[in-house]
Write a protein that binds this DNA or RNA. Structure first.
Lengths: 160, 160
DNA sequence: GTACATTAGTTAATAGAGCTAACTGTTCTG
DNA sequence: CAGAACAGTTAGCTCTATTAACTAATGTAC
C-alpha cells in the first residue's frame, strides 16, 4: 500500500494514533447506543449481556474478569440489568455461594436489536471503503486488540 | 498483504471488530493511566489538557466540540482540572462572555509525564510488530477515526 | 470437629463523567 | 432599545467505577 522508502512508522506513532482514535470512537458508540434507545442499554450493559449470552450460567467473577472491572462494579451492573428484566440471577444448585446468570428472552431480543442498530450505524460510516481497506482495518483492529489484551486472562482465552 | 481471492470483508465484520476492540482498549488505557497515577488524570482530563496545550486560549465551546461532549460536561471537566491546578480559566479581554483556557506549568509537566507513560505502555505492547504492520495499523486507525467522526465538526477540522 | 483461610458475592461510601433543563450574563441585530 | 443568539454555569439525575468492610459458604489443618 505504501512504498518501503517511506519513513518507518514507530510504535510511538501508533500509540498516539490509538490514543487519538479510541476515546472518540468509544464516545461515538456510547452516544449512538443511547440515542438509538432500543432499551436504554449502555455499552457496559450491552457487553454484559453479550457475555452472558455466550456463557450462560456464568458467575460474577468470570464476568468481572471479562469486563475488566472489579467484582463490585460487575455486581452493580448486573443488579441494574436484572432489575430491567434482561437478566436472571439465580443460586447455583450445589455451590450456594455462586450465582448463575442467564439472559432472559427480553434480554435476548433487546440485545439483538441494539447489536444490530449499532452495527448498522457503524456500517453506514464504513460505506465507501473497498473490501481491501476493510480487510486491512479488520486486521489492524485484531492486532490492536491482541496487543492491548496481552497479559490479560491468558488462561481463559474466552472470546467476546 | 492478503490474496484477492479471500472472502470479501464486509463493513459488518469491521463494525463487529470495532465493537470488540474499542471498549477493551478504552478500559485498558483508562486503567493503565490510573494505575500509573502520575497525577490521577482521567482520560477525558488528559484529552482536555492536550487540546488546551495545542489551542492555548481556547474557549469552552470549541473544547466541548473537540471532546464530543455537551457544554455542561466540558464546563465541569474544566472545573475539576482547574481546581487540581493544571489549568487556568480566565475572562477573554474583549469578549467578556468567553473564557480563555490556558494550561499551567504543572499541567504541562503532568501532561508530558502521563502522555509519555501511557504511550510507553502502549508501545511496550506494540513491540514485535514490524514497521509495515505498524503503518497498516496507523492507517486503519486513521480511517476508523474519520469514519466515526463523520458529520462531527466538519467545519472546524481542528486536529487533536 | 472446631478454627482458620479462602472464595463468591454484596453493601456502602465516594467520585468522575455524562445528560437535560433552566438559568445568568453578554453581544449582536432589527 | 427590544429581543434573538451566544457563552457558560448551575442543578439534578444516572451510570460506572473504585476501595473498604462485610456476610455467607466451602475447604483445609490439626
Amino acid at each position: 500500500m505504501y512504498h518501503e522508502c517511506m519513513p518507518a512508522t514507530t510504535p510511538d506513532q501508533v500509540a498516539t494514533a490509538i490514543l487519538e482514535t479510541v476515546p472518540p470512537t468509544m464516545r461515538a458508540i456510547r452516544g449512538q447506543m443511547r440515542s438509538a434507545r432500543v432499551a436504554g442499554l449502555s455499552v457496559p450493559q450491552f457487553r454484559l449481556l453479550r457475555f452472558v449470552r455466550r456463557n450462560p450460567g456464568t458467575g460474577l467473577s468470570a464476568l468481572a474478569e471479562h469486563l475488566g472491572t472489579t467484582l463490585p462494579a460487575a455486581s452493580q451492573l448486573v443488579e441494574r440489568v436484572v432489575r430491567a428484566g434482561f437478566l436472571t440471577r439465580a443460586q447455583h444448585p450445589t455451590e450456594r455461594r455462586r450465582v448463575e446468570l442467564h439472559i432472559t428472552e427480553a434480554g435476548d431480543a433487546v440485545l439483538a436489536q441494539c447489536d444490530e442498530r449499532t452495527r448498522a450505524w457503524l456500517c453506514e460510516r464504513l460505506e465507501g471503503l473497498d473490501p481491501e481497506q476493510l480487510e486491512a482495518i479488520a486486521g489492524a483492529l485484531r492486532q490492536v486488540r491482541s496487543a492491548v489484551e496481552r497479559e490479560r486472562f491468558v488462561e481463559k482465552g474466552m472470546p467476546l
